[in-house]
Amino acid sequence: MGIEREENMFKTLAIEPLTKEAFAPFGDVIESEGRDYFMINNGSTRRYHRLAEVQTDQQGEGIISIFRANPLEYPLHIRMLERHPFGSQAFIPLFGNEYLLVVAPAGTDQVDPATVRAFRATGRQGVNYHKGVWHHPVLTLTENDEFLVVDRSGPGNNCDEYYFDDSVHLELKLD
């Protein structure tokens, strides 16, 4: 069962600023800006509590990793997206560098190219992709950038990949 199209699709993705509201259909924005907090450690520390939740199935467990990534070449032809059906996946930048996100809604086994969106995150924003949300692998803009990653480990294949057919051309250009 394929996506019905009248003709080939060519779309340049507009890169939107990453905001809590715009990203809500795909997951959580992890940042302290504009968020509630309470004081801990004898008043020396603000705790921005529960900014995101780790989602796992009953067989999985939450794990913490570090990903080191390099930039891809732009303009970038988006050929595939991936999803994690058994758990969420959070990325928190460690070096404070901007990075990009390309996402599409969860809920289907195929990705409608018309629903794909792109965001630019500041180096002070992390994201938590909700379980099943389609997303491009990490898109750093800086050599040897690092991200703290919180996701699921456990039995089963927790990474599905969707490849667009040749009639779809989604392009990501830097401003």
Results as ranks from 00 to 15, higher is better:
84 H>R: 04
45 T>W: 10
56 T>Q: 06
52 A>R: 12
5 R>W: 03
166 D>C: 00
81 L>W: 00
124 R>V: 06
131 K>H: 07
151 D>W: 11
174 L>C: 02
76 L>W: 00
85 P>C: 13
128 N>L: 05
131 K>Q: 14
11 K>N: 07
1 M>D: 13
166 D>W: 04
39 M>C: 07
52 A>P: 11
123 G>D: 11
51 L>E: 09
116 V>P: 03
93 P>A: 03
42 N>S: 10
17 P>F: 12
116 V>I: 08
24 A>R: 11
17 P>L: 11
16 E>R: 11
32 S>C: 13
29 V>G: 10
148 L>F: 01
107 G>K: 00
92 I>W: 08
145 D>F: 15
53 E>D: 08
86 F>S: 03
35 R>Q: 15
167 S>D: 00
50 R>N: 14
156 G>F: 15
163 Y>D: 03
150 V>P: 05
168 V>R: 03
60 G>Y: 11
156 G>P: 13
70 N>A: 02
46 R>I: 07
72 L>E: 06
2 G>W: 01
148 L>G: 08
141 L>S: 02
32 S>D: 12
24 A>P: 04
62 G>D: 02
152 R>F: 10
86 F>W: 07
7 E>V: 07
74 Y>A: 03
63 I>R: 14
122 T>Y: 09
78 I>R: 00
153 S>T: 15
168 V>H: 01
43 G>M: 03
90 A>Y: 10
